[in-house]
Amino acid sequence: MRLPPGDVFVFVVSRTDRLKVPLAVLATIILATTLAPVIAPYDPMAITGEPYQPPTREHLFGTDTLGRDVLSRTLFGGQQSLSIVLIGVAIIILPGTVLGMSAGFYGQWTDRLLMASMDILLAFPNLLLALVIITLLGSGGWQIAIAVGIAGLPAYARIARTATATTRNALYIDAARAIGVRSDRLLSHHLLPNVLPLLLSFAAVSLSWTMLNSAALAFLGFGGDPSVPNWGVMLAEARYAFRVAPWMSIPPGLAITATVMAVNRLADASQERFRNRT
C-alpha cells in the first residue's frame, strides 16, 4: 500500500472533530498575526499614551512600560515569534528527515555514524544546547531560530530513523525492490509516504518545543533589539512590571500557550489516527 502525499493530508485532516478546534485556533492566530498591520489599533513601536495604563476602551489590554499599546504589540509580536518558530522547525524537519531516513534505510555505517552524532547532541539538555549556540552566534531573531532548530534536530532525526528502519523490511518495499525500483526512488516514493503521518505528528511536537524554547531565549534576553515586538520579550518586560501592571503578561502568554496547546492537540489527534490505522 502506498499513499500519495495528498491522501496523507486528507487522512490527517478529514472527518476529525478533534482536529477542528486546534486548527481553528491556529488559523486565528496566524490570521491575526498576518493581518496585524490592518487590524492593530496602533503602531506597535509608537508611544501612544501614559505607561502602565490598565485596560481601557482606547487600549484594550492596557499599555506597557513605555506606554506602547499591548494589544498591537501582541498582534505584531506574532510576526517575529512565529517566523522564528517556522525557521526553527524548517531547520529541524528538512535535514532531520533526510538524515534520519537515510540512516534508517541504508543502515550499517551510515546509520552508526549519524546516530552516534545525534546521541552526542541528545546528551545536551535541549535548552542548554540552544544556549551554547547562542554563545557562539550572539543575540537576535535569526540566531534564536538557528539555535532552537539545531537543538531540536537530534530527537526528530531519531524518530525519522526508527520509523524508516521498522518500515524498511515491509513486504511492499521488498516487492518494489524486486521489480527494480532504485534506492532513491524507493525512499521518496515508497517509504516517505508511509512514514509521513508519524513524521508530521512528531513535527508538530517539535513545533511546540520550538515555540516554548525560542520564546524562552527571547525571555532570557537573547532576542536582539527589544523594541521589535516579540511574545517572549514582552513576557520579560511584563515580569519586571508585575507589581504595577500585571495585565501586561496576559496577551503574550495566552498567545504562546494557545499556539503550543493547539499544536500539541494536533499532534495527539494525528498520532491517534495513525495508531488506529495500523
Partner: peptide
C-alpha cells in the same frame, strides 16, 4: 496538556 503548553515564564509571573 495545559501544564505542558504553558511556558514556565508565564505561569511563574502569574504565580508571583
Amino acid at each position: 496538556v495545559l501544564a505542558l503548553s504553558t511556558p514556565i515564564y508565564w505561569t511563574g509571573t502569574a504565580a508571583i
